[in-house]
Simulated scan of single mutants.
Amino acid sequence: MSPLAELLLVLVVLGLAVKLLLLNFWRAVLFVSPGSVRLVPVAPADRMQLPPELAPLAGQLQALGFVPLGSHLEKPRFQTGTPSYDFAHPGEHTFATLHFSPRGEPRLYLLTPLAPEGFVLTAGYPRPGFELPGRYRSGGFPESSPERLLEFHRVRLQGLPASEDFTWEERLRSGQAWYRGLGQREIRRQNLQGLLWTAVALAIVAGLFLGGDRPV
Results as ranks from 00 to 15, higher is better:
Val155His: 11
Gly65Ile: 04
Gly175Val: 06
Ala177Lys: 06
Leu196Arg: 04
Phe78Gln: 10
Glu53His: 11
Asp46Phe: 08
Ser101Cys: 08
Phe78Glu: 12
Leu14His: 01
Ala45Arg: 01
Leu196Pro: 04
Thr198Asp: 02
Phe130Pro: 13
Phe66Met: 04
Val29Glu: 07
Trp26Cys: 04
Gly65Lys: 00
Arg189Trp: 13
Arg27Tyr: 06
Leu23Arg: 08
Pro68Val: 02
Leu57Arg: 03
Arg214Leu: 15
Leu160Ala: 06
Tyr136Cys: 06
Phe31His: 05
Val155Thr: 14
Leu160Val: 08
Arg214Cys: 07
Gly118Val: 00
Glu147Lys: 10
Tyr85Gln: 02
Tyr109His: 14
Leu98Phe: 02
Pro102Gly: 02
Pro215Cys: 04
Val42Phe: 05
Glu164Asn: 12
Gly175Ser: 12
Leu208Phe: 03
Arg103Pro: 07
Tyr85Met: 03
Pro83Gly: 01
Leu57His: 03
Val120Trp: 02
Phe141Glu: 11
Arg127Met: 15
Tyr85Lys: 01
Glu6Lys: 10
Leu111Ala: 07
Gly212Tyr: 07
Ala55Cys: 09
Gln158Asn: 11
Leu30Glu: 03
Gln49Lys: 12
Arg180Asn: 10
Pro41Met: 05
Arg188Ser: 03
Ser174Asn: 10
Ser145Thr: 15
Gly134His: 05
Leu110Trp: 00
Asp46Tyr: 08
Leu57Met: 14
Val37Asn: 01
Gly91Phe: 08
Leu149Cys: 06
Leu14Asp: 04
Arg77Leu: 15
Gly104Lys: 03
Trp26Asp: 07
Arg189Tyr: 12
Arg103Gly: 14
Thr94Gln: 05
Arg185Gln: 13
Ser33Asn: 12
Leu149Met: 08
Pro133Gln: 06
Trp178Cys: 03
Pro102Ser: 05
Arg188Thr: 05
Ser84Lys: 07
Leu11Ala: 15
Gln62Ala: 11
Pro106Trp: 01
Ala58Leu: 05
Pro106Arg: 00
Leu210Glu: 08
Gly140Cys: 07
Trp197Thr: 06
Asn191His: 07
Ala5His: 12
Asp213Ile: 10
Leu208Met: 06
Leu195Arg: 00
Val29Asn: 05
Leu111His: 04
Glu151Lys: 11
Leu61Gln: 02
Trp168Arg: 09
Phe87Asp: 01
Gln193Arg: 10
Glu169Arg: 10
Ile187Lys: 03
Leu39Met: 12
Ala199Met: 10
Leu21Arg: 01
Gly175Glu: 08
Phe166Met: 06
Glu151Tyr: 11
Glu186Val: 13
Val37Asp: 02
Ser163Cys: 09
Val42Tyr: 03
Ala17His: 02
Trp197Tyr: 14
Arg27Gln: 15
Phe141Leu: 10
Arg214Ala: 09
Leu30Gly: 01
Glu164Leu: 13
Tyr109Trp: 13
Pro34Met: 04
Val32Trp: 14
Val155Asn: 09
Ala206Tyr: 10
Gly175Cys: 09
Ala63Ser: 14
Ser145Pro: 11
Ser174Arg: 05
Trp168Val: 10
Leu4Ser: 13
Pro126Ala: 07
Leu14Ile: 06
Leu9Val: 10
Glu170Val: 08
Leu196Met: 08
Gly91Lys: 07
Arg214Thr: 09
